[in-house]
Write a protein that binds this DNA or RNA. Structure first.
Length: 466
RNA sequence: GGCGGCAUAGCCAAGUGGUAAGGCAGAAGCCUGCAAAGCUUUCAUCCCCCAGUUCAAAUCUGGGUGUCGCCUCCA
């Protein structure tokens, strides 16, 4: 018997009990379009659904987790025109960079990482299926559009109404033949001068954006004989419409079954209370922030706010958040890692996360655990569960797994470390001859280098502070 | 214009009917040569405003204000 898990389903707009379709939980996350480095918004999304995955695993579920790469897109083609690089040169570069960022953030690697360019056949098949079933039509240029008026369930995902969608009329030249303004492109036929095109059973061209996710899910994950193709479909809140609406619609029409049983969306990362985005010029690349703080510190910071809330990023708050993580590592320094399981603590951490990933309560339990563990160590009460709990924390939250000494020395060169160690050695000598004035001067000097020191019976420890 | 989110202490942030978790900062104490770290205690008579339902509301209902977002590519 599994514990009860509740998740907020964006479609039902309510918390609902999670009941998997089958023994194996199938999750699909909309991944990045690989035309540039990943920013903090990508980090937030990845961390949110990495937590979901870890929570399901900790509850004893078998999970198959897929995250795609959109590696064919107009923005990539624009980049090709700008830089003269080939499609794969650009996409490989940014996929590599993305995966490096994800590793730094301690994101579990997906089981499946499909690419649009490796799914062309399946995309063409699905488009063809939609054409045959008359859910799609060709325009004179050869483009294929999805006819949204043919799906009575269209807009049921995002709860919009058709009238308002139809008021829009921002049509490009190729879109003038659309039957409905909300119709979207499934396949763009090759035109003279196109930098990229693929041969397929429906002719030469390239896929539209939405169709790739439907095709990838169908190829890699989907149940064929259930009420839903997959259990959980995740992505940023900005993808709910039109991306997920369109995905759901075309999948429903092509396969006859609903795409996902649950839809989860994470909130935005904001800067100065505005959504972080390329167009506003207020986005931060993950790799740039990694120069200054470890991936684990960034992970912990982004993890600390509930995944559905908007997250207002500030470096000051990041530092405050780090101080909280520091405590876990100071505790880790005090204990030797061994084994055994504290079932009660484990259940406490997990039960709050089982309530729509309530991280805030989980972290309160974590703080309590650290405080009680320190108290026991102060009082020399033996508790073999402490070290084991730290291991569980890392399994569940992806924090606390680094080396506890190295953690406090992030970003310092070996020369700098030697200087610090020398100063500390001099201070210990001064203390031994009771020259406290000199000892305090050295401590002040270390403080000015952003180094904090802690005397203990085991000698002097030091930490880099922000 | 349509649809939606959010509004809790100096800051960050849980809590969706039973009388305000947790973290940071602040204050006091223990410890320390002094510190730091750690531990203990303390720190919102009140949850944007108004009205209503209820024995009881931060939590439900109605109205209002502010703010962010989706409706074009976006995690």
């Amino acid at each position: 018997m599994k514990n009860k898990i509740e998740l907020f389903d964006s479609v039902k707009r309510d918390k609902v009990e999670f009941i998997p379709i089958d023994n194996e939980v199938k999750i699909y996350v909309c991944g990045p379009t690989v035309y540039d480095n990943a920013h903090l918004g990508h980090a937030r999304s990845s961390i949110s659904f990495d937590l979901l995955r870890r929570v399901l695993l900790a509850n004893g579920y078998k999970v198959t987790f897929a995250r795609n790469y959109t590696d064919i897109d107009d923005k990539i083609i624009n980049k090709m025109a700008q830089t003269g690089e080939t499609l794969s040169e650009i996409t490989n570069k940014y996929i590599k960079s993305y995966e490096s960022d994800m590793r730094a953030l301690n994101i579990l690697d997906p089981d499946i990482k499909p690419k649009a360019t490796e799914t062309i056949n399946e995309i063409a098949q699905m488009v063809n299926e939609l054409l045959i079933k008359n859910y799609a039509y060709r325009t004179s240029s050869g483009d294929v559009y999805f006819d949204t008026s043919r799906d009575s369930e269209y807009l049921s995902l995002s709860h919009r109404n058709q009238k308002n969608e139809e008021r829009e009329s921002r049509l490009t030249k190729n879109e003038e033949e659309k039957r409905n303004s909300s119709d979207f492109v499934l396949w763009k036929a090759s035109q003279n001068g196109d930098l990229v095109s693929f041969d397929s059973s429906i002719g030469s061209g390239r896929p539209g954006w939405h169709i790739e996710c439907s095709a990838m899910i169908n190829k890699h994950l989907a149940h064929q004989d259930k009420a839903y193709s997959i259990d959980i479909h995740c992505g940023g809140a900005d993808l709910l419409f039109p991306h997920h609406e369109n995905e759901a619609s075309q999948s429903r029409c092509a396969t006859g079954i609903e795409l996902a049983k649950y839809w989860l969306h994470n909130g935005f990362v904001k800067i100065n209370n505005e959504k972080m985005s390329k167009s506003l010029g207020n986005s931060f690349f993950i790799k740039d922030i990694l120069q200054k703080y470890s991936g684990e510190v960034i992970r912990f910071y982004l993890l600390s706010t509930h995944y559905r809330s908007d997250f207002n990023f500030s470096e000051d708050d990041l530092i405050v958040s780090k101080r909280r993580l520091d405590k876990l590592y100071r505790l880790k320094k005090r204990v030797k890692i061994s084994s055994d399981t504290d079932i009660i603590f484990r259940d406490k951490l997990l039960s709050s996360l089982n309530d729509d990933l309530n991280i805030s309560q989980t972290l309160a339990e974590l703080d309590k655990f650290i405080s009680e563990a320190n108290d026991k160590l102060d009082k020399k009460i033996k508790d073999s569960n402490i070290s084991n709990s730290i291991i569980f924390i890392n399994d569940l939250l992806g924090i606390g797994g680094s080396d506890e000494v190295e953690y406090f020395k992030f970003g310092l060169s070996s020369d700098e470390r030697i200087d610090i160690e020398n100063l500390i050695a001099n201070r210990i000598k001064a203390k031994q001859i009771k020259n406290f004035k000199l000892a305090d001067e050295i401590r002040t000097e270390l403080n000015s280098m952003n180094i904090a020191i802690m005397d203990s019976i085991n000698g002097t420890e030091w930490e880099r502070i922000e």
